[in-house]
């Protein structure tokens, strides 16, 4: 299973590295979202600094939708989905590989967005361990949920509109927990919250989504 996961994950990352869609389109889109938030809110009264954690994770969610669509589009082209099914690879391995590749892409995107938040919003990145732990758990949860819902919405003509409708309500707890944990770490929380509790919740979310994906990808692969 792990060998298959490495194969699929490396394949997805290689395709992304060669096509450069993530770097040329998704990352600029994510930064543009940060800039648009600054236009919508008042940048001169500390509003952006206070809301930075939430705005960061909303930008990540929007970008994640695009990245998931891209990840599924790779399988749809040239009958690659059928080839994967015929390859005899373990469906759980395929899920882990795709989710892993997606997590790597999202994490890279979060680094770009993190730099954007520091530069554009003037956030002081205090509490590094919490920020990194939150980002790691939230990214894993987003990648796993995105891979499952991406597979559910794949192959339909309405995939672009269906995927956000399916994915966003399901990852709402990730947004809430990641935002609260980052607020606690950055010291911008309105109420006193324990970052460790939120990071633990994110860990549970990641484990649940990964476990569900490992179990459900077999039946989903059968149909193709």
């Amino acid at each position: 299973m792990w060998r298959d996961a490495l194969l699929v994950g490396a394949k997805d990352l290689r395709v992304e590295a060669r096509s450069r869609v993530a770097t040329n389109q998704v990352a600029p889109f994510a930064v543009l979202v940060l800039v648009l938030f600054a236009f919508a809110l008042d940048p001169d009264r500390g509003m952006l600094q206070r809301a930075a954690a939430g705005l960061f994770w909303v930008a990540v969610l929007f970008s994640a939708v695009l990245t998931v669509q891209r990840s599924q589009a790779v399988e749809g082209a040239d009958g690659i989905g059928d080839a994967l099914r015929l390859s005899g690879l373990d469906p759980a391995g395929i899920f882990l590989g795709k989710a892993g590749a997606l997590a790597v892409e999202l994490f890279a995107l979060e680094l770009v967005l993190g730099a954007g938040v520091i530069v554009l919003y003037g956030v002081d990145p205090a509490g590094y361990p919490t920020l990194v732990a939150t980002a790691a758990a939230a990214t894993l949860a987003l990648a796993a949920a995105g891979t499952i819902y991406g597979a559910l919405a794949s192959g339909s003509r309405v995939q672009e509109t269906l995927l956000p409708l399916l994915l966003l309500p399901a990852v709402a707890p990730v947004l809430i927990a990641a935002t609260r944990a980052w607020e606690a770490a950055l010291g911008t929380a309105v109420a006193v919250t324990a970052a460790a509790d939120w990071v633990s919740l994110l860990g549970v979310l990641a484990v649940v989504y990964v476990a569900f994906g490992v179990a459900a990808f077999g039946p989903l692969m059968e149909e193709r």
Binding site: L166, P169, P173, F212, A216
Partner: peptide, 23 residues
């Protein structure tokens, strides 16, 4: 098949949403 998987996933997601918004 897809609907069945989505329905079971929704059952998993509802309690998680419950914890998140409850906290």
């Amino acid at each position: 098949r897809r609907s069945a998987v989505a329905a079971l996933l929704a059952v998993v997601v509802v309690p998680l949403n419950h914890f998140a918004v409850d906290w």
